[in-house]
Design a binder for these strands. Structure first.
Length: 518
RNA sequence: CGGGGCGUGGCGCAGCCUGGUAGCGCGCACGGUUCGGGACCGUGAGGCCGGAGGUUCGAAUCCUCUCGCCCCGACCA
């Protein structure tokens, strides 16, 4: 056992340079490109198909929980944003603002905004829509009989971020934002929890991505919210990624927007509202949860195509027979249902060498690869390659049984990916009992070129913001006060035990989750 | 927004210090040999050297400004 390490399709590898590996996977899997505009991206068909599948799954879950889609304007009057004090403060620093409605020839050529066409009130390109949807809700809601109001919109938003990364943090991104109004606090809190649970289910069942779900600390709250809940996932560099949020907004936005209703007893009351969202950031999470040194690895339920098939053609004599066999195979696969959908098949007939096709589909993460050549027709069998197995490994199946067998394998892959990600997270989740241990856990050996280190640390915290801040010294923060999803970790049983704050020694009712975060 | 790095054919890079109008590998096109495999040989296409000013007889190379990307930090629903 010696010699050079096997060549990988992605260079550098995760261990060599995780950040660069991520960039390379996004590009080589053909998910997205940088756009000519700073911080913006072009989502390419393979990446956009992932988003469409995400939308389809989530949209179904939103509908199933009683929500309806609507669409609100991209532009928000500046005065709307000013209505909720904390909200303004949270978003003012990163707003794109529209001030003119016409261009004219400039003094030195080109076009400039026409000074005569300045808007009376500047419009903000929505960073989120609480305020403008709140204004609509105020009109829609009169009586308790109008509640609950359960609305979702699929939209783009703009946040002028200082530092951007494809999918993870872009200036413009795609998302869904749910906005609901309720007659009682309890109902709104229930909604907040319900939608967080929808996100958790989606992450686990569709993305095969284990998440920890629970409330954020005050410091990490959405501007204007009473309480923010989130799902957090561990990426392969062991950092936490916030993958979805659900906010209990109390009556803050109802007061700001005047969402009032007459209750059954005749009294006038402010509604209780919530908002919740996930974005194209999920695709970044997908890359960093399952990707390997050969590129993307897609969970079958979200994959734009479940199977890639291509012919091995040696001479013209075989050609017609092989292509015919592929045609038959593809037809059978496309008639097969799996996970509530018919299978998507990419038949790759491009005039490209077999190995090149193979590696392209590996990089793109397609779950199953099948090559069909003359020899297969002779034997009546084909080799089926799983993306989650070494690239030379093959399942050998009778050709006519492929369609009948793929479902089982796809289901197995879906399960295995979740199990593998869960095992990874558990392996790097620890319970720690003093500040020194915590700091050591989050400190790389090589400060110059930090290796992959750290993970999730469950530690006691008194609840004070000063102590919370102490973790910032070694770049960790409290991600979530765990409620759900960490049950499998060896350290899990220690979450609910009482203890002493690792920083000040004050009493702590339970452990919280510390991690470095995206 | 502060510190650092980088922008040269589709991708990865060399050339820049010591100015003289562009080179390598991969990819691409064509021909041939191979052929269940990340092949090989030959021929060829493709670059206003991120952009704008400036210095100079002459700028990818020097100076100024600007745009973008990456890393670290601050910030981040």
């Amino acid at each position: 056992m010696s010699g050079p390490p096997p060549r990988t399709a992605i260079e550098p590898t995760r261990a060599e340079d995780y950040a660069e590996w991520y960039q390379q996977v996004v590009r080589q899997a053909d998910l997205a490109d940088h756009a000519p505009v700073r911080g913006c991206m072009i989502i390419k068909p393979w990446g956009y198909a992932l988003w469409e599948n995400t939308q389809r799954a989530l949209d179904g879950m939103f509908k199933a929980t009683g929500h309806r889609n609507a669409y609100f304007p991209l532009f928000i009057p500046l005065s709307f944003l000013e209505k909720e004090a904390e909200h303004v403060e949270g978003f003012a620093k990163e707003c794109a603002v529209v001030t003119h409605h016409r261009l004219v020839a400039g003094p030195e050529g080109g076009l400039v905004p026409d000074p005569e066409a300045r808007l009376a009130e500047p419009l903000v390109v929505r960073p989120t829509s609480e305020t403008i949807i709140g204004a609509a809700f105020a009109q829609w809601v009169q009586s308790y009989r109008d509640l609950p109001l359960l609305i979702n919109q699929w939209a783009n938003v703009v946040r002028w971020e200082m530092r951007t990364r494809l999918f993870l943090r872009t200036a413009e991104f795609l998302w869904q934002e749910g906005h609901t109004a309720h007659a009682t606090e309890a109902e709104a809190r229930e909604e907040t929890a319900r939608m967080l649970d929808v996100y958790r289910t989606f992450a686990e069942q569709w993305m095969a991505m284990p998440v920890v779900a629970g409330p954020k600390t005050d410091a990490e709250r959405f501007p204007g919210a009473v309480e923010t809940h989130a799902i957090e996932a561990m990426m392969q560099d062991r950092k936490a990624l916030q993958a979805g949020t659900s906010h209990f907004l109390g009556q803050n936005f109802a007061r700001a927007s005047g969402i009032r209703f007459q209750a059954a007893d005749g009294s006038e009351q402010y509604a209780w509202t919530t908002s919740w969202g996930v974005s194209t950031r999920l695709l970044g999470a997908l890359v960093m949860t399952h990707g390997d040194d050969d590129g993307l690895v897609l969970p079958p339920r979200l994959a734009p195509a479940h199977v890639a098939v291509w012919p091995v053609l040696r001479d013209d004599a075989d050609r017609a027979r092989v292509l015919e066999a592929i045609e038959v195979l593809a037809r059978a696969l496309r008639a097969t249902r799996w996970a509530d959908r018919t299978l998507e098949v990419e038949v790759d007939l491009r005039d490209v060498r077999g190995p090149d096709k193979q590696w392209e589909w590996i990089r793109k993460g397609v779950p199953l690869r099948i090559e069909v050549g003359p020899r297969d027709l002779q034997s009546g069998t084909v080799g089926v390659a799983r993306r989650d197995r070494p690239h030379r490994e093959r399942l050998v199946w009778p050709l006519h049984e492929v369609a009948a067998r793929v479902g089982e394998v796809l289901s197995d892959m879906q399960t295995q990916l979740l199990q593998k990600a869960l095992a990874f997270r558990d392996a790097y989740t620890v319970a720690l009992d003093d500040a020194g241990e915590l700091e050591a856990f989050f400190t790389p050996r090589d400060a110059q070129r930090p290796e992959i280190h750290g993970g999730f640390a469950l530690a006691h915290w008194c609840g004070g913001s000063a102590c919370e801040q102490r973790a910032h010294a070694f770049k960790a923060s409290i991600r979530v006060v765990p409620v759900h999803g960490i049950a499998a970790a060896r350290a899990a049983e220690r979450i609910e035990e009482r203890g002493r704050c690792v920083f000040c020694g004050g009493p702590s009712p339970r452990r919280v989750l510390f991690a470095k975060a995206y």
